[in-house]
Amino acid sequence: MNSHGNDAPLVLILEDEVLIGINLQDDLQDAGFRVAGPFTTCSAALEWLQTATPDTAILDAALRDGPCREIAQELGNRAVPFLIYSGYGPDQELLAAFHRITWIEKPVPPSALVQACQELLVSES
Rank of each mutant, 00 (worst) to 15 (best):
A61M: 09
Q50K: 11
E47P: 03
P38I: 04
P67T: 11
V35W: 01
T41W: 01
S43E: 06
A45V: 10
T56I: 15
L63K: 03
D55E: 09
L49G: 01
P54H: 08
E47T: 14
P38H: 06
T41F: 02
C68A: 11
T51P: 00
A61W: 09
F39W: 06
V35E: 02
A52C: 10
R69P: 00
A36Y: 07
A44E: 13
P54Q: 05
L63A: 03
G37Q: 10
T40L: 11
A57T: 02
T51V: 07
D55N: 05
A61T: 08
F39N: 00
P67W: 06
L59H: 09
T53A: 12
G66N: 14
T41N: 04
I58F: 02
E47F: 10
C42T: 07
A52S: 12
A36R: 06
Q50L: 11
R64A: 13
A57N: 02
A45D: 06
L46I: 15
A36N: 13
P67G: 08
A61S: 10
Q50C: 13
P54L: 05
W48N: 04
L59N: 05
E70M: 06
A45W: 02
D65L: 12
D65K: 11
I58T: 01
I58H: 00
L49Y: 03
E47G: 07
T51Y: 09
A45E: 04
G66V: 14
S43C: 02
A61N: 09
D55C: 09
A62M: 11
F39Q: 01
D55G: 03
L59T: 04
P67S: 13
A52Y: 10
F39A: 01
T41C: 04
A57V: 01
T56Q: 09
E70D: 10
